[in-house]
Design a protein around this nucleic acid. Structure first.
Lengths: 340, 340
DNA sequence: CTGTTAGCGCCTTCAC
DNA sequence: GTGAAGGCGCTAACAG
């Protein structure tokens, strides 16, 4: 049991006044005499009195806590999301509760429950790539805890979410490569259950068709986004007799592993093969042979918008009956890297 | 005001029993009849009853919340610290409150206050590189909120902390370079007020002396760790008439900027100049010319140890009078990169 | 076995 | 201007 701290009752006793007076004095209520107000604030600071927010929030049935669950923080994409979220939340006096799912559905579930138990006012979630059951999210709905999903969205009805529209980025990517003369363009996609993968996939097909290129199933593969998976996928595409001259990857990290693999196989980057990826990670600018272009997904902005959306929902407690859905798709954008 | 949720009182009323009975039934107290226990749990789940942890913690004067403040999450060093922390905290049912100081003292201060207001049980802090006043940390002490500092430690007396001992790493680094034939070895250090910088500095001098190399002030410079600062520092060292053949940098990111600068100046990496750095960031393995060696600082382990330390303090509420100090210095370790 | 009561720290009517 | 009383949701000491 933590040690007791100074409360308004302690102050009241010492001053021989009632706790309500102390309360009012501290919150600068107009109907309190200047003298008592002074005495109270004086003593309060002497005793190092600190109001207990929890008691207040408790009464208000509010915590000013937002639960945030991401697969991981180790890549800068998610780190940027966090920054965007934090900047908005911080302004509005909300604090973030943090959890990494590690792409583990059970862990995600358990974190959701913990945060629910902490009575967070709302949640921001980017789902794990292995999440296939959505029971834990429905639990939140039951508990009237609003959720805004970010970037990795579950396939559920009636949810709030924000994501980056990948279709246009993928089309720009394909167009870019075609313009450079490529017509055998491979795709290393992400886990199939992610909506982000499905979106890339269909946009890829659409873009090829627009460019009158017949899709070749052999040129399409998936990775689980581990280094091993990335290398495995690269191996598969590069071993084809009809080898691609360009590959579009799920994100920059996949591309980096693929490029590394090529180098070890003495396949020359930007000559034998070119890479275009997603995420536009800044670290790639330090590479000698980064992907020549990358689709920017604006993680910082996604984080900001998601938070604004959530706060909007929180501040506007409209009746259940007319629950309005909030969702937003920011357009992505192909960024061509400066050639060094 | 958030909507009211089901409470034990609601259950008690419907069942015509007292709320204490409900409370006991729910927490599986031995002295409750099986029948009532059944009825209670039954109704509870029907009504989607969810206990309010806050009321419980409120009584216990505990929150199971740990405040975490880091300069940023965008670099993987801090991301690893977070992972280490989270893994331990998660096991012990503690949840993390998150804040980024952005290396801004005022922001750090304000986050500390917010977390104090949320009555976190304890805090883990890696201080901002611009923090020079420690008032906000003393405030925490006054409030009996224990703090364990991680990696970036303020120069205060009587604090708990964990860091990585850099002296041995720096000495290994210098020895390594000397063995490779270098005797003009530069240093790009970090902000001077960081203890981590001071430690590198004195270890650097010590190591040179051990190797009978006379230190040259011109070969030592500092960066504020921004890209501009890193480049500025590189410029300065490389413009020397007695140009270093090797440079040790504060961390990998500094080295990357320096290497980038060299390349643009047509200074050949690993021929004209070699780099050794700190942090051993995995991303460097993708580079064509990463620093040839880097001092591993074990951020994940630091995070783990810090959390264990904090939890130990929390669970062992020994009287103020005999407050024991906890601190730990993990040894660092020079890691030589595979040459590709 | 179960009910009553009190209290965690604060705010907020309602009185005077 | 100030005090008294009640309640937020829950647990626990004390009675039966």
């Amino acid at each position: 049991m933590a040690p007791r701290k100074i409360t308004i009752i302690d102050i009241a006793k010492r001053l021989n006044i009632s706790k309500s007076t102390v309360s009012r004095a501290l919150s600068n209520h107009h109907s309190i005499g200047l003298r008592t107000k002074m005495r109270v604030t004086q003593l309060a600071s002497e005793l190092n009195y600190e109001p207990d927010n929890r008691a207040i929030f408790f009464k208000q049935r509010k915590t000013y806590l937002i639960g945030l669950i991401l697969p991981s923080f180790s890549n800068t994409f998610f780190a940027s999301i966090v920054s965007g979220i934090e900047d908005i939340a911080y302004q509005k006096k909300y604090t973030l509760l943090l959890g990494q799912s590690r792409d583990d559905q059970e862990r995600e579930k358990s974190i959701v429950e913990t945060m629910k138990d902490h009575r967070v006012d709302g949640m921001l979630i980017s789902i794990s790539k292995n999440t296939t059951s959505y029971e834990h999210f429905k639990l939140l709905e039951k508990n009237n805890i609003p959720v805004v999903f970010i970037d990795r969205i579950p396939e559920m009805q009636n949810i709030h979410f924000i994501a980056c529209k990948l279709e246009n980025g993928m089309i720009e990517a394909v167009n870019f490569l075609v313009k450079k003369g490529h017509n055998i363009i491979g795709l290393i996609n992400g886990p199939e259950n992610l909506s982000a993968s499905k979106e890339r996939y269909s946009a890829y097909l659409k873009a090829l068709r627009k460019n009158k290129i017949k899709p070749d199933k052999k040129l399409i593969t998936c990775s689980d986004l581990t280094m091993e998976g990335n290398i495995e996928a690269s191996k598969k595409l590069l071993a084809l007799t009809r080898r691609p001259t360009a590959i579009i990857t799920f994100n920059d990290y996949v591309a980096l592993d693929a490029i590394d693999y090529c180098k070890r196989q003495k396949i020359k980057i930007d000559e034998d093969i070119s890479f275009v990826s997603f995420a536009n990670e800044a670290i790639c600018n330090y590479m000698d042979h980064p992907p020549i272009a990358s689709v920017e997904q604006f993680p910082y902005q996604q984080g900001q918008k998601a938070t604004e959306m959530l706060l909007h929902i929180l501040e506007e407690p409209n009746p259940e009956s007319e629950k309005t859905l909030n969702n937003l798709l920011l357009p992505s954008q192909l960024v061509v890297r400066r050639t060094s």
